[in-house]
């Protein structure tokens, strides 16, 4: 059976095609202004990749903050349920799933069957989301993809006082002026956001194994900070972690049969 999942995030919209439990195509587009158009485009791109037509897809489920806009979908689900379903398809040992997206951070606790038993969300404050890292990359004039590797080279822990993204921007500029090595600043930033995420995750209770999904999963410096802050052996990150929500939606579409 072929199903599709669409995750309509604040910044990007993702689509995946699932055939009998295997992801056979994935596509991503910027959400932009017209969410429905973005969803159509992501789905069309993924279908083109798999050399399939719309009619080959048995069912399509949507998730993400803009899921109501995907009116062509056959069903929708919360991001929490989709993240957990997607993660467990890829790694069934997970009991805690953390999703750090562009404008939201989430922590979910789940059973072996992929049922969400508790969750916590931050969607009010950029300090616990990908926007924070993006803003800091701008303030440091450092490409986003370099930040992870750079922070791993840090030898010194420097303290960040600001929690707010806007205030942290000025603090980073002051640290640069004070000639603080950039790798130490980047590590401090990763520690700061990891602290925010972990204090949220502790509210639901952290049980191993722990997985991290969402675009910020690409940042190896943040993954390391998260692991240290959670005091766990390792944090599992899938390949292309931003697609996990869409995968979960496609799984749910398959299960709905």
């Amino acid at each position: 059976m072929i199903t599709a999942g669409i995750d309509m995030g604040a910044k990007t919209t993702k689509a995946v095609i699932l055939r009998d439990g295997n992801v056979i195509a994935r596509a991503l587009t910027f959400t932009g202004f017209d969410q429905k158009e973005a969803a159509e485009k992501a789905l069309a791109d993924a279908l083109a990749q798999a050399a399939l037509n719309r009619s080959d897809v048995a069912r399509t489920f949507a998730t993400g903050v803009g899921r109501q806009q995907a009116s062509f979908a056959n069903g929708s689900m919360t991001e929490m349920a989709a993240d957990t379903k997607g993660s467990l398809l890829l790694n069934n040992k997970l009991r805690t799933v953390i999703d750090v997206g562009a404008e939201e951070g989430r922590a979910m606790k789940c059973t072996a069957e992929g049922k969400v038993t508790d969750f916590a969300v931050n969607e009010k404050c950029a300090a616990g989301a990908g926007s924070f890292v993006e803003a800091m990359s701008r303030a440091l004039e450092l490409p986003l993809e370099k930040m992870g590797e750079m922070s791993l080279r840090s030898k010194n822990a420097v303290a960040m006082n600001a929690q707010c993204t806007v205030f942290a921007e000025s603090e980073v500029v002051s640290l640069v002026h004070a000639k603080t090595p950039k790798e130490d600043i980047v590590r401090a930033l990763h520690d700061a956001i990891a602290n925010r995420i972990v204090s949220m995750a502790r509210r639901v209770g952290v049980e191993e194994s722990v997985g991290l999904v969402g675009g910020v999963g690409y940042n190896i410096g943040f993954v390391d900070a998260l692991r240290r802050c959670l005091e766990v052996e390792s944090v599992w990150v899938p390949e292309q972690p931003e697609y996990v929500g869409a995968i979960g939606a496609a799984v749910a579409a398959a299960e709905a049969a």
């Binding site: 009010k124 404050c125 950029a126 300090a127 926007s131 707010c164």
Partner: peptide, 10 residues
């Protein structure tokens, strides 16, 4: 509607 300045900007 956003409280956070970063989100309010978006």
């Amino acid at each position: 509607s956003s409280t956070c300045v970063v989100f309010a900007k978006t």
